[in-house]
Simulated assay, not measured.
Amino acid sequence: MGLPRYKDDAGLGDVVLSLSKLKIEGQYWDFKRQWPENKAELLHDIICLANNADGETGLLIIGIDENSGYDIYDINLHAEGRKNTQQLNDFLGSKQWAESLPSARVVPINLNSALIDVVVIEPDDAAVPYYLVQDYKEGKKSVRAGAVYTRHHDGNVSLDGTASPLETERLWRRRFGLDKTPIEKLPQLLSNPVKWHSTKSLLPFGEYGGGYCYYYEDFPEFTLVKSNDPGKDAWEHFMLASPFCHGPNWWTVRIYYHQTLLREIQGAYSDHLWIPAPCWSFLREPNAGLFEDGSCLYTFLLRARWNAFL
């Protein structure tokens, strides 16, 4: 069945209970009896979980006592140093990070009539590894600038240590998507429009009407071809995003890896903005007596991603 993993806040209590029954810590979860009194220790814990080797959502579970058989410990019994999400992010945001800071939030949950806090640290492959560019010290503990902290199985890399070269390489490979398949890598490339550059179309003029072609700066084997669809003249609501849209202007975007077509996305220009055509879906109310044939009461749009650079 594998290890229990975070999916959503609704199932977080079950995940915490399952992990506590294992009576060990792991790559992406860490137990604390109470909130660390030393904030350098708290910062160190969060960085290690954000840089976990599995790329899983990190869980700093506060309210599980390792020294008492991994029993639940109500944090109300020792609430010193407790933080909510805003206080935690104010603390993280005040540090000098190399680039972005980890995305973390505090989720209080009740387990067996006891209150515990879970710091949920969302993964972001495009931001790892997280590290500081200025030391942060409190008391005798210091989070060192330039040190890449991560977790070794059930424990953190020590404050005076750093990740091994192989562990650091693995994090950087995640950052650049080097271990991903072309399909997995594609969303990361599309999220960085400034690295797409115009080039000569790889298609003959007669195929899809030629079109405009772009390649990705770091991985030029990825190309994007945008071609006009003169045979389509239907109006759709998303075209009204601009008051200067004078008529349907449909274009299709095709994304290739070498000569393999990965994605084909239809869309249209609204003034100077190319908008992918949203997918339609329907919201039904089976108990409503208004429509006996079960027709929909509402329609709504899925996938409203606007790529102004295309």
Rank of each mutant, 00 (worst) to 15 (best):
Y212A: 11
N51M: 03
H78D: 15
I46W: 01
D8Q: 10
K83T: 02
E236T: 12
E56F: 09
V253P: 02
H258E: 14
A10C: 09
E169P: 00
C279N: 13
P182T: 03
S270I: 03
K195N: 10
P248T: 01
E221P: 07
M1H: 12
F31Y: 00
P165S: 08
Q134N: 13
V119K: 03
S158L: 12
P129Q: 03
Y256F: 15
L240A: 12
V148F: 07
D124F: 08
D233V: 05
G289R: 11
Y130K: 01
S18R: 05
G211M: 07
A277W: 03
N192E: 14
W251I: 00
G267N: 02
L262K: 00
I62W: 01
S142Y: 03
V120M: 04
W196E: 02
N228D: 08
I47T: 06
K21P: 05
A127T: 02
I121S: 02
N307M: 12
F291S: 09
G139F: 10
G2W: 07
N192P: 00
G211F: 07
L302A: 12
Y215A: 13
N84I: 01
D233Y: 08
L88S: 04
D125C: 04
D30Y: 00
N38K: 06
S20Y: 00
A163V: 09
V253L: 14
T223I: 08
L77T: 08
G161S: 15
L159F: 01
T199K: 14
A104R: 02
S68K: 15
L283A: 13
E221H: 11
Q134F: 05
R144N: 10
R254D: 05
H272R: 14
Y269D: 00
P4H: 03
F238I: 02
W172C: 06
K83R: 14
L202T: 14
Y214N: 00
S18E: 08
F244Q: 10
G210S: 04
N287R: 13
G13D: 12
Y216G: 02
E122K: 14
R144C: 07
S94K: 05
R284N: 13
A10D: 14
S94H: 02
F91V: 08
D135R: 06
A127E: 05
L202D: 11
Q27Y: 09
A79W: 09
C48M: 01
S281F: 09
K7I: 10
G289I: 09
F282M: 11
D135H: 06
N110T: 15
L22Y: 08
G267C: 02
W29Q: 00
K137A: 11
A304Y: 10
G210C: 05
T57C: 10
G81C: 08
N307Y: 12
Y214Q: 11
E236Q: 09
N67V: 10
S227D: 03
H78Q: 13
D54R: 11
D271Y: 10
R174I: 04
L178S: 15
S281N: 14
E41S: 12
E80H: 11
P108V: 04
